[in-house]
Simulated scan of single mutants.
Amino acid sequence: MVVPVSGSPDDERAIDLAAAVCTGSETTLILVYVVEVPQRYALDVELPEQIERGSAILERAAQYAQRVARGKWKRVLTELLQARVAGAAIVDEAIERAADAIIMATRSRWTLGVLTQGETLPYILDNAPCDVVVVRVAERGEAAS
């Protein structure tokens, strides 16, 4: 099971969802953080600040995953990847790990007058070799009263 993380509070929602759909203690949870490398740099460029940030985010996410799902995971792995496009890196990781599912959280946002979830989610939905489970996190005050 692959869960992309970004450092937002939504990461916990995705991990919670992964724990809820986990069917047994043989599941490996793979937390993935992608450093997107701008085109002007070589793909293997050293980006110490982004790497440090990603490592800290992965560490917090792994600690949270262990805390909320004791005994659910066979193990929790973390992967820090560098790529041009996050969606492609996440799909490649799912392929490489033969993942059963990619589980992620997203928020809708307005961009140029259009409601969107960004570029990563549509790419993953179109190209993932496995199930994709998405929770759209509501903005505060968005829920019906």
Results as ranks from 00 to 15, higher is better:
105 A>M: 08
43 L>N: 01
78 T>W: 02
80 L>E: 07
142 E>W: 04
108 S>F: 10
20 A>K: 05
103 I>G: 12
44 D>N: 07
67 R>Q: 15
9 P>V: 11
103 I>D: 06
125 L>M: 15
21 V>A: 04
105 A>N: 12
124 I>S: 06
44 D>P: 00
119 E>L: 15
70 R>W: 03
108 S>W: 00
81 L>Q: 11
7 G>L: 09
74 K>M: 09
86 A>E: 05
93 E>M: 05
48 P>S: 15
106 T>N: 14
143 A>P: 07
75 R>Q: 13
115 L>E: 14
84 R>M: 13
92 D>G: 08
36 E>N: 01
94 A>I: 01
115 L>Y: 04
95 I>S: 11
145 S>E: 13
33 Y>D: 08
37 V>I: 14
98 A>Y: 14
138 A>K: 03
1 M>E: 02
46 E>N: 04
72 K>D: 00
8 S>D: 03
99 A>L: 03
59 E>R: 12
93 E>S: 11
132 V>T: 15
13 R>N: 07
16 D>N: 01
139 E>F: 07
127 N>F: 10
109 R>L: 15
69 A>Y: 00
38 P>Q: 09
116 T>V: 14
140 R>M: 04
117 Q>D: 10
32 V>G: 02
78 T>Y: 03
100 D>K: 06
51 I>C: 12
32 V>S: 03
132 V>G: 10
134 V>R: 15
13 R>D: 09
120 T>G: 05
74 K>N: 12
14 A>F: 06
45 V>T: 08
26 E>Y: 07
73 W>K: 04
22 C>F: 06
31 L>E: 09
109 R>W: 14
131 D>A: 15
138 A>C: 04
79 E>I: 09
119 E>R: 11
60 R>A: 13
125 L>K: 08
107 R>A: 14
4 P>F: 02
54 G>K: 06
64 Y>I: 11
8 S>G: 14
121 L>R: 08
6 S>I: 11
137 V>L: 07
127 N>G: 04
134 V>P: 14
89 A>D: 07
130 C>Y: 07
72 K>W: 05
67 R>P: 00
93 E>D: 02
108 S>H: 13
73 W>H: 13
69 A>D: 00
